[in-house]
Nucleic acid binder design. Structure first.
Length: 130
RNA sequence: UCGUCAUGUCGCUCCAUCGCGCGCAGCAAUGGCUGUGUGAGGAAAGUCCGGACAACGUAGAGCACCACACCACCUAACAGGUGGGAUUCUGACUCGUCAGAAGACAGCAAGUGUCGCAGAAAAAAACCGCCUCUCGGGGUAAGGGUGAAAAUGUGCGGUAAGAGCGCACGGCUCUCGGUGGUAACAUCGGGCGCGGACAAACCUUGUGGGUUGAAAUGCCAUGUACACUCUGCGCCUUUCGAGGCAGCCGCUGCUCGCGGAUAUGCGGAGGGGGUAGGCAGAUUGAGGUGCUGAGUGAUCAGCACUCGAGAUAAAUGAUGGAGCAAUACUGAGGUAUUGACAGGAUCCGGCUUAUAGACUUGGCGACAGU
């Protein structure tokens, strides 16, 4: 099958409840400048991701939007790393990427961080919740 | 041509590939694929004013609180804008005119309060001085010096000495009338008067203001969830304790089997609130663009054309290339770096603040030419 680098609506983490649950019960790991919080689920559910850049760290809305777009772009281009492993284990995940630096960092640094996190997440644990 | 000030406009461009929101079309059929169109700002910002819209409230009046405050006009409205007036400041010169600038320009002559230092005294004043004298005192705001400010200025009269005490010419306040002006106001004449400043001191007067904001508000509503109402629950035996069969529920879609419940239960129908979630509000509007006309202008009127984001854990990005601009380096070909301020969240009108660079128009200055 041809590899496509898309990021559709179904792949976005949008449910308020699930987000709160992820923050409350999920595991986390930091790969500077990004902290990931995730929850592993069974394979019937869609893997979803959300991106957050706190206003407290990045003051200007323009910069926040820009960083969020860069993170999302990095996720879009590298999510196959995550998907392949999850498919093998018959799992899915709900992930929140949280920007923790206080200034805008170059694109390659963000992408390296994302790749590191995506490789780490599937190997972390068994299914946390159904 | 350069500099500077003001005004208005624009505020990186193009191509390729990958990707995103929304609309439309087609194909698929349960949320996808393909094609196509479209997709942030002049401030989207601050959330400081004013409205639209919505919900709730609302007999009338007063108090409190908040806002505003020369006049007229514009506007849906405004604390905004336009034009005008007075004041103050600056500049020019032909010295009383012109030009420009500034702003909480209603009232301290309603009451209360405050006025550091200096000074006798900071509001209805007696230190020195002057006059008088019964040597206790009394009169006196001319002169002295202090101060940001000292009791209407100058002259004459007057007096014991003085004083708007009187007079003349001025200044100012209030007021009456004439003229010009819609008005603020200007100007001329008459009259009462002479009260220092501060209302960004309390306050007084006039005008306006119901409260809360789209996280408002209205609506729909999944289920092996639920309030409530109606309704059904059989047959046989019996020593009346119960037992059996059928039916019901679960494993389980069917057969068998096993287990469970049997009126505080189970099944059926109605039905309301409303969780997850969704829809409306919500993008055609005080809309844009152009032309013509009215007006000093803000603005208004008419006609023609036009539809330019609509997300909701929230869409505009990434990579590569070419150009443009700026800066630095440079034996002028180039090399390197950078791309102002800044991102919609119900929608409009303003204000304020941020902003690299480019351009338009006008004023002033310098240089060059005529």
């Amino acid at each position: 099958m041809e590899q496509r680098f898309t990021f559709k609506r179904a792949e976005r983490l949008k449910s308020r409840k699930l987000i709160e649950q992820t923050f409350a019960e999920g595991k986390s790991k930091i790969a500077y400048p990004i902290r990931a919080v995730w929850l592993l689920r069974d394979a019937e559910q869609q893997t979803q991701a959300a991106f957050a850049v706190p206003k407290r760290r990045i003051k200007k809305a323009v910069d926040r939007n820009r960083i969020k777009r860069i993170i999302r772009e990095a996720y879009r281009l590298n999510k196959h790393l995550l998907y392949e492993q999850l498919d093998n284990k018959e799992q899915s995940a709900a992930i929140i990427f949280h920007y923790v630096a206080n200034e805008e960092l170059p694109h390659d640094k963000i992408e390296a961080s994302i790749r590191k996190l995506l490789k780490h997440i599937p190997n972390s644990s068994k299914i946390d919740t159904a």
